[in-house]
Computed example of a mutant assay.
Amino acid sequence: MINATAALGRLANEEHAYEHGHERPLRGYLAAMAVFAGGTGAVAALARMTGRQLPERIALTDVILGGVATHKFARILTKDAVTSPARAPFTQYEEPAGSAELNESPRKDSELRHGIGELVTCPFCLAPWIATGYVATLTFAPRVARAWSAVMTTVAISDALQHVYARIRTE
């Protein structure tokens, strides 16, 4: 039988050794990973129960549009001023970052809030979650997935054109 107290002590020692003098919200990361794995597992179970399967092959256009859409949606969720109320429980406002984006830092009052704060302020970190949702939606509702990716890709192209226009305009 495993001694729970001894096991927790060993885990705490491992965590301390890993951090090497820096605060790292490993328990918050672990919780986020558990949610991701659980959500992915639930979607796979639902697919199996309903007789759906992942597409045998995903079209290159779906990959390209999904990639651009994932990039744009990740920026909106992690940096946009308008979506800051959703991040506020996990972040602290730092400063404007330009182009309607904000710089925020994760709150550090608990490992869970810190870990989630890092996730919701990092477009690179959130992108796999979004891309997984996109592929899952391609499995269950491909028209919805393609419509979403078309909207987000169109917004990304518009944003790029806004930046180009701002640089080349003359008054």
Rank of each mutant, 00 (worst) to 15 (best):
L138N: 09
E171H: 14
A156W: 15
P128T: 02
S84D: 10
E94M: 09
R10F: 05
V82A: 03
A42Y: 08
V35M: 11
A156M: 02
I157M: 13
P142H: 10
V35I: 15
S149E: 04
A160V: 10
L65C: 12
N13S: 11
L102Y: 05
A88D: 08
G9W: 00
L65K: 03
E104V: 11
T50E: 09
V164K: 10
R169N: 12
A37H: 03
T91I: 05
A97F: 07
L102N: 04
R75S: 02
A86D: 00
A131C: 06
R27A: 01
R169Q: 15
T78G: 01
A31G: 08
D80M: 04
R57W: 14
L11S: 01
I76R: 09
Q162W: 04
E23Q: 07
V82P: 00
P142T: 02
A44R: 01
H71L: 15
M1A: 11
L46A: 14
A160Y: 12
T83I: 03
P55V: 07
A97Q: 09
G98W: 10
G21F: 11
R52E: 12
G39Q: 11
R75E: 08
E118V: 04
S110C: 07
G28V: 01
D80I: 02
A17I: 12
T132Y: 12
V68C: 01
